[in-house]
Design a binder for these strands. Structure first.
Lengths: 188, 188
DNA sequence: GGCCGATGTTGACGGTGACAACATGCAGAG
DNA sequence: CTCTGCATGTTGTCACCGTCAACATCGGCC
C-alpha cells in the first residue's frame, strides 16, 4: 500500500493497475456477479492466468480493489474535513455528507468494501486499509466512542439507502441532516 | 410468503424447507462461497437439478433464505419489544440490543440479508420481507425519521462489529448503550 | 382405471477458478 | 558483450458450477 502500483513491470506496463481498473469497471457495469477473473484478464488484454502473477486468488483481487476504495474514501473525507475547517463549520456533518455522497456515487465499490466479497479476516490488509478513513472521521469527534457511533450511523444510512429500503421516504439531504444532527445533539 | 412452505410435496417431503435448511447450514459452516446449488442439493439428498423445481435460480434460493432471516429478525424484535413493554422499560434500547444479538448470533445469515448475495431490486419479495422488521422498530420511535436513524445506527454497528473493525475496542454492552443512548438522547 | 401435471433424474454445455508446465524478455554478473 | 536467472505472461488442463432440455416417476382427479 505504500508504493502500491510498483514500478512498471516488464511485459505489459503496470498490469496490476490495469487489472484493478478493468475490475472496477466490470464491477460498476455488470455487478459483482459479472466480475470474473477471466473477464478481467480479457478486458486487460492479457490471457487468463496472467492475473495470478499479481494476485494469488480472485478474492485477493477483490480485496485490493476494496482497499483502493478505502483509500479513495479517506481522501474524500480528508477533503471534506479540510473544507469544513476553512469555513469554520463543525466538521462532523460535512464529513457525513461526504461519506454518503461517496457511497451513492460508487455503490458497487461500496458494497464490495463492506458486506460483499472478500472477508476481512482473511485479508488483514483490507482491514488495515480501512483504518485511515476511520481515523480521519475519529479526528472530528470528541472521543472514540462517538466516532464509532458516527461511523455506524452513516454506514448504516448508506446501506439502507442503497438497498432502497427507505427509498420512498425523504431521502434528500434533510434526512441526513436530521439523523446526523440528532446524533450530534445527543453528544453535546 | 404467506403459507410459505406449502403442503408437503409428493416425492421428498417438503423439499423447499430441506433445501433452505441445508443452505443455511452450508452458509453458516462454509461461508457464502461454499454455498453452491449442487452442494445444497447433495446435502438435501436429491439430485443436482431438483432445486430448480422450487427456486428458479440460485439467487432466488438465497433471496428466500434472506427473507426467512428477516422473518426471524422480526420475531426477535417483537419478542424484545413485548418483554420491554412488560417491564415498562423504554423499548428502543432493548430492541437495539436484540438486533445486535441477532446479527452476532447469525453472522453469515445477516451478511446475506444485507450486503452480499441477492440484490433487493431483482427480488422485490426480499425487500417486502424486510418491511415488517422495520415496522416493528418504527413502532418504538416517535416518527419515521427517528426509526430510520435508529435502524441505520444498529445496522451500521452490527456490520462494524462483524467486520472486526472496532473489535479491539470496548465491544461490550457499554458501547451499545452509550451509542444508542446518545441517539435516543438527541431525539428527546 | 387411466390420464395429467407436479416433482425428481439424467445428461449435456459453456463458463469459471485454480494448478502445472512452458515460453519470453529484461537485468545484472562475469 | 554474453550468459544466466528470474519475474512475467501463455497454453493446457481439471474439477466444479449454474442452467437448459429431455426423460422418468408418482399421486390426484375424471
Amino acid at each position: 500500500m505504500s508504493t502500491w502500483p510498483p514500478q512498471p513491470p516488464y511485459h505489459h506496463g503496470n498490469l496490476p493497475a490495469a487489472l484493478l481498473a478493468a475490475a472496477e469497471r466490470l464491477l460498476r457495469e455488470h455487478g459483482p456477479a459479472g466480475l470474473s477473473l477471466r473477464e478481467v484478464a480479457r478486458q486487460a488484454g492479457v490471457s487468463h492466468n496472467a492475473p495470478y502473477r499479481h494476485f494469488p486468488t480472485r478474492e485477493a483481487l477483490l480485496a485490493a480493489l476494496a482497499a483502493e476504495g478505502f483509500h479513495r474514501l479517506d481522501a474524500v473525507l480528508r477533503e471534506a474535513a479540510a473544507s469544513a475547517a476553512q469555513t469554520g463549520e463543525a466538521p462532523l456533518l460535512p464529513l457525513g455528507r461526504a461519506y454518503l455522497r461517496f457511497a451513492a456515487a460508487h455503490p458497487a465499490l461500496y458494497r464490495l468494501m463492506f458486506g460483499a466479497g472478500p472477508r476481512k479476516d482473511e485479508h488483514p490488509a483490507l482491514r488495515a486499509a480501512a483504518a485511515p478513513a476511520f481515523a480521519t472521521l475519529a479526528a472530528c469527534t470528541p472521543d472514540r466512542q462517538a466516532a464509532i457511533g458516527a461511523w455506524a450511523l452513516v454506514h448504516g444510512l448508506a446501506q439502507l439507502l442503497q438497498d432502497g429500503q427507505v427509498a420512498e421516504e425523504l431521502v434528500g439531504p434533510e434526512l441526513i441532516e436530521a439523523v446526523l444532527g440528532r446524533y450530534v445533539r445527543g453528544g453535546a
